[in-house]
Simulated assay, not measured.
Amino acid sequence: MNRDEIAARIPHQGDMCLLDTVVAWSTDHIECRATGHTDPAHPLRAQGRLGAANGIEYAAQAMAVHGALVAGAEGAPRQGYLTSVRGVSLHVDRLDDQEGPLCVRAERLSGDANQVLYRFSLHHGERCLLEGRAAVVLDADLLEPRTSS
């Protein structure tokens, strides 16, 4: 799956679509490749650098593509929201000094049609740059509000 096919399945468009290809996927995982992290015009770059925490956005986009592929979404993408990220470990300070492609992985740990828990990681070659877990809520505006007792 190429960048245009990815962009057709996620809400991130134009320069904000950070993934170039889907390398492999199944119902419980996805692996993507990204190469734009060294671009001086990267949309998340600040003060002349792309900090490692921006890798969470790469992972979020991989999760969004995964959700669309699993759901068989051919039309408009479902709106998803990261509700929490936990256990995040940054093993580098920045991403833009990593020459060559990044590998973005996400594994679905649990969930249902509206809430999903993923484990994610970003690698450069064999080196893990960051890793963590993320909770995602899909179509949050469709969820029934909780009432307090």
Score class of each variant (00 low, 15 high):
59 A>D: 03
69 L>R: 12
60 A>P: 02
55 G>P: 04
88 V>D: 00
81 Y>Q: 09
60 A>N: 07
66 H>S: 06
55 G>H: 09
63 M>K: 13
101 P>W: 13
122 L>M: 07
65 V>A: 14
90 L>Y: 06
106 A>M: 09
81 Y>W: 15
104 V>C: 05
119 R>A: 14
57 E>I: 12
121 S>N: 11
89 S>I: 00
83 T>S: 14
99 E>D: 15
96 D>P: 01
70 V>E: 11
89 S>C: 09
89 S>N: 12
71 A>K: 09
56 I>R: 05
77 P>E: 03
93 D>R: 00
118 Y>A: 07
84 S>M: 11
61 Q>S: 11
77 P>S: 02
66 H>I: 01
67 G>H: 02
66 H>A: 08
90 L>P: 10
86 R>T: 10
100 G>W: 11
113 A>Q: 14
83 T>Q: 14
80 G>F: 00
81 Y>A: 05
60 A>F: 05
119 R>L: 12
69 L>D: 00
78 R>F: 14
109 L>F: 08
79 Q>E: 12
82 L>F: 01
68 A>C: 10
61 Q>E: 13
122 L>C: 11
62 A>Q: 07
80 G>V: 08
54 N>T: 15
80 G>D: 05
74 E>C: 13
107 E>K: 07
59 A>R: 02
112 D>K: 04
116 V>N: 08
94 R>S: 13
121 S>V: 03
68 A>Y: 06
89 S>Q: 10
57 E>G: 01
77 P>Q: 00
91 H>N: 13
92 V>T: 12
72 G>I: 03
118 Y>D: 03
84 S>G: 15
86 R>C: 00
63 M>Q: 08
53 A>P: 07
114 N>L: 15
112 D>Q: 10
54 N>P: 05
64 A>V: 04
81 Y>D: 01
121 S>L: 11
74 E>L: 11
113 A>I: 02
87 G>S: 13
54 N>I: 12
112 D>G: 14
97 D>C: 07
65 V>I: 12
76 A>I: 03
66 H>N: 09
84 S>K: 06
58 Y>I: 04
110 S>H: 04
70 V>S: 06
104 V>I: 15
106 A>H: 04
112 D>T: 09
84 S>P: 11
103 C>L: 15
73 A>F: 02
98 Q>A: 12
95 L>D: 02
74 E>P: 00
101 P>L: 08
105 R>H: 05
115 Q>R: 13
82 L>M: 14
96 D>L: 14
107 E>G: 05
106 A>K: 04
84 S>R: 12
64 A>F: 08
60 A>V: 04
66 H>D: 08
97 D>W: 02
54 N>Y: 12
93 D>I: 02
75 G>L: 06
109 L>W: 10
82 L>R: 07
98 Q>D: 11
116 V>E: 06
115 Q>A: 07
70 V>N: 03
67 G>T: 06
77 P>L: 00
65 V>E: 07
107 E>T: 12
82 L>T: 01
75 G>W: 01
107 E>L: 09
93 D>C: 00
93 D>Q: 07
113 A>E: 15
107 E>N: 08
94 R>P: 00
94 R>D: 00
56 I>Q: 06
